[in-house]
Amino acid sequence: MFEILAKKELAPHIKWIRVKAPLVARTAKPGQFIVLRLHERGERIPLTLYKWNKDEGYIELVFQEVGKTTYEMGTYGVGDKIMDIVGPLGKPTEIENYGNAVVVSGGVGAPIGYAVARALKEAGNHLTVIAGFRSKDYVILEDEFGKISDELLITTDDGSYKRKGFTTTVLEEYLNQGNKVDFVFTVGPVIMMKLIAEITRKYEIKTLASLNPIMVDGTGMCGACRVTVGGEIKFACVDGPDFDAHQVDFDELMLRLKQYNREEKLALERYLKGGA
């Protein structure tokens, strides 16, 4: 059992928790994830790590309430326990001193972007963070990003905070201004990652995308998370979650993420009605 040590609401339906998980914290690296199961009847879901502390033995996660499991997890408070957490899973992000690195995150991709951005900064990169959110109310981790980035470009879809527009527009502008970029890491909605990859392909910039497919075991056993990369079948849980963004079949990933839409809707409605 894994105890929740602290909890905060960062934005509507976006929550931060600190959980005691010493074995995960011990060897966690940026870009890696965990799989958790809330209780005996729970499903296994992957969540990428935001922060961790080896000495204190905890990990920090940020999640958005979208389905039954995340809504239910949102009701867990300090002192409550998550039944199972396994990790760290997946390959860590390839961190090196690329020169000028840009991290592009969308929505709740921000915490993963933060973990990677921090490591890129520590590795000596000049770090630019482009973080996009739906609107002012949904802006998260601004201070955290501010502390580690050389340049922080926040944008909102509706223009209610900072500038108006998508991260793609911001990146394109940034490149048009003549900024030299050696490496891009992108994480967020699949459509955003796809469009970011299209931009950086034109500029021939090495780009990694952190993928978020459906998983069950998270250890390479089931193939639920399979994605097509460069025409080959890859398992995001063990071969990823990061892949060369220019090789990923994002359209397929988008369809695969909808596989259980109907069931997820049913489970959520039932849960919100107090069914289980």
């Binding site: 009847r41 296994r44 069950v216 639920a224 997820e264 069914g275 289980a276």
Partner: peptide
Amino acid sequence: IYSANEFLTRINLMKAYQFPEYDTP
């Protein structure tokens, strides 16, 4: 399209046959 591993794991380990009493579809 499933691997047998995924199909059987969802059913056996995760009890998808009892969805929505169990959360795995």
